[in-house]
Nucleic acid binder design. Structure first.
Length: 394
DNA sequence: TCTGGGGTCCTAGGACCC
DNA sequence: TCTGGGGTCCTAGGACCC
């Protein structure tokens, strides 16, 4: 029995959502109709394109490029700042709307999800007409447009939703794979990025068709255990199920690009203090504890270093995370100016099984834990900025 | 390149143990 | 030990995605 999967993808999500916000708040201009982008803050050295309008795209502007470069391609370009809180609300609105029709929805990112239509087809009938109805309803009721891709698995549904935009429904069933995606350049295949495509071109594999028909043993030396997966993808084969319960996340990270490169340990520690707090807050919100703490440093040449420590006792305490991070910096930083600092917490557990050692006591941990919880509650009540750790705002 | 932030998964080398 | 092979864990880095 063939599966029927929908992939629902908001068109130019950040830009569409900002357009909706501006229209709702009295603007006469729909920024979807002009050359415009959502962009980061250039002063804070985060000046890249996060989303672009269809017209901006016609100027050759791509997501991820610098605003400087985007402006050069299109001198009249309008740049708007991101509104992450509003985006999250719109995302929730969309997914909750879809849940009216089916509980079998897998959230893939803030603006994309999969829906297992096969399970509800008896209720709603033919998938193509239902997808069209759904797309029109979303536009009318939510004020932004989506693409819907229909396929026999998640990979095909996702590829289909990308065909032509905006506000379109496309199908890519198994028996359409040859006709619809084999003629496309290899870069268009989901999972082929900027490192893999040159390797494939070197092997004279330029179109998805070439990969689908490639010889496994010829590719194996270059792609090892990924070879079969790669060839399967080109054939449109994918057996991943739609998973509606979001799996517990495996780690949390928080990074900060600094307005200026940091050249002293004190500056790095100061930047890390706030990052450690954010990690602690995320972990405590879900009652989780990390057994591995990693620091991330990006130097002024964009080289990234990581260094990690496995803990005897899992933690979610701001102070402990911060102290470990400091120690890790001491162990690896070679004085190269630092552009970005970050911390990642991994190997998460749900309970604190405390191994008593000679050097720390469970009582101390409980005291610190109380302190963090109290601060979290105050921040929740009065806003994030009400309490600052000494030095964190220098 | 005037080049973000938050995730997941994979790989390769070394340590350690049997 | 003049020492082999395999399994597991740990660590750092890399690829890819939105």
């Amino acid at each position: 029995m063939d599966r029927i999967i929908f992939h629902i993808d908001v068109n130019n999500a950040f830009l569409s959502w900002s357009a909706k916000y501006l229209l709702q708040n009295g603007s006469k201009l729909d920024i979807r109709e002009i050359p415009s982008v959502i962009g980061g803050d250039e002063q804070r050295r985060a000046g890249i394109v996060l989303a672009k309008s269809t017209i901006a795209k016609k100027f050759g502007i791509v997501t991820g490029e610098t605003l400087y470069s985007a402006r050069r391609k299109c001198p009249g370009l309008k740049i708007y700042p991101p509104m992450h809180t509003f985006y999250q609300e719109q995302s929730n609105l969309l997914f909750n709307y879809l849940k009216n029709y089916s509980p079998d929805i897998e959230t893939f990112s803030i603006d994309e999800c999969f829906l297992d239509y096969g399970k509800v087809k008896k209720l709603y009938g033919d998938q193509l007409s239902f997808a069209n109805k759904l797309k029109n309803e979303i536009k009318e009721k939510l004020g932004f447009t989506v693409n819907i891709g229909i396929g026999n698995n998640k990979l095909c549904a996702k590829m289909a939703s990308d065909f032509s935009k905006p506000n379109q429904v496309h199908t890519l069933y198994m028996n359409e794979v040859e006709e619809k995606i084999w003629p496309l350049p290899i870069e268009e295949l989901f999972g082929i990025g900027r490192k893999t495509s040159p390797k494939l071109h070197d092997l004279n594999i330029n179109y998805i068709r070439d990969l689908a028909n490639a010889d496994y043993s010829a590719l194996y030396p270059y792609f090892k255990n990924q070879t079969a997966i790669l060839i399967d993808k080109a054939k449109g084969i994918d057996n991943e199920p739609v998973i509606s319960e979001r799996p517990e996340y495996k780690g949390v990270s928080n990074t900060k690009t600094l307005p200026k490169d940091l050249t002293t340990k004190e500056e790095i520690f100061n930047a890390l203090r706030g990052v450690a707090e954010n990690i602690g807050i995320s972990l405590r919100k879900d009652n989780r504890y990390a057994k591995v703490i990693t620091i991330i440093l990006k130097d002024c040449y964009f080289k990234v270093y990581t260094h990690q420590k496995k803990l005897k006792n899992a933690t979610n305490l701001n102070l402990e995370i911060f102290n470990i991070a400091k120690k890790l910096v001491n162990e690896i930083w070679d004085e190269t100016p630092i552009r970005l600092v970050g911390i990642r917490a991994d190997n998460l557990v749900n309970e604190l099984n405390y191994q008593v050692s000679l050097f720390d006591s469970f009582e101390d941990v409980k005291k610190l834990s109380k302190l963090d919880e109290t601060v979290d509650k105050l921040k929740d009540k009065y806003g994030i900025d009400i309490i600052k750790t000494a030095n964190s705002d220098k």
